[in-house]
Computed example of a mutant assay.
Amino acid sequence: MQWTDEQIGDIRKLASEGFTRRETADKLGISYDALQGKARRLRIEFQKPLKNEYDSDGTNRETPSADRKVALNADGSQTVTALMRLKHEPNKDPRTLMELCGYDPDKFEMVLGDYKVYEQHSTEDGTVPQYSIHIRVKPKQGLSINEMAEAFNDKIIPVNYGMKKSGDRNLVIPLPDLHFGWTTFADLKDMVSQLREIIMDGYNEIVIEQLGDLFHSDQIHVTQTVRGTQLDHANMRQAFHDAVKLFDQIIPLAIEYSNHVSMTAIWQPTGAVHTC
């Protein structure tokens, strides 16, 4: 991004007036990440929404609220109402509202949230705005989108496989309902070893069929089916690593010992078929 002197001047001005990084980025219409990088290089200090010191459960040790009420709900979520005086009207994005109410956005996700503004009269300060922030949050479970991407992209190294052996027969490898997250790669170790020996006999074509549920959970953040049925908790980060490890053991070997390899994935509830 090319920065103008005017933009840099605006950043310094808003920072000196007590705006946070996120508020400054929104006012200037630039990305938060770009602003953060530029401010760090220029050593521009911004107002912090609160002291981000969190206990092990993800709640903040210190909140700017003079009045904060928390209710625990039956589904494990928490409903919070916080009254506070702020220098500037806050953004309504989930991260800002959770931080103002004392929650770590990396450990909680917001179900709903909003705020109202009231005028508070004081002989010392005059008329000042008071904000009533109301949110409902729940602990994050499983993987975030970034964590899922990291799991898929972990230590990926492009390689070229040369042909070692082929034949005139065809081989179909069905892999139904593996349920990674409940199943681990260690559970399949003997099966994978036998399968590798079979592949190394050499074939004209090898078809790998991934059928049904590859993962135990259809959700990323909760262990549930696509219809919302609650399942036993599964470590979905480890599930992705185990799935990648399985196919890393099979697909490169199939390429080396056959003239052609294809993979078909079929899953419910749509019965969709994808071939590559």
Rank of each mutant, 00 (worst) to 15 (best):
L28N: 12
L28P: 08
G29V: 02
G29H: 03
I30E: 03
S31K: 05
S31R: 06
A34L: 09
L35E: 02
Q36F: 14
R43N: 13
R43Y: 03
K48R: 09
P49R: 08
K51P: 01
K51V: 01
N52F: 06
E53N: 14
S56L: 15
D57N: 10
D57V: 02
G58W: 03
G58T: 02
N60P: 06
N60M: 15
R61H: 07
T63K: 11
S65V: 04
A66R: 12
A71Q: 15
A71N: 15
N73D: 01
N73W: 06
A74H: 14
A74W: 09
D75Q: 01
S77Y: 02
Q78A: 08
Q78G: 05
T81W: 10
L83A: 10
M84F: 03
R85W: 02
R85V: 05
L86N: 13
H88R: 11
H88P: 00
E89T: 06
E89F: 08
D93P: 15
P94M: 15
T96M: 09
L97H: 00
C101N: 09
G102K: 03
K107P: 00
K107V: 03
E109Y: 14
V111Q: 09
L112R: 14
K116G: 08
V117T: 03
Y118H: 09
H121W: 12
H121M: 08
S122H: 12
T123M: 13
T123R: 10
D125V: 05
T127Q: 08
V128C: 08
V128Y: 09
Q130T: 02
Q130C: 06
I133D: 04
H134T: 00
V137D: 01
P139Q: 11
P139C: 11
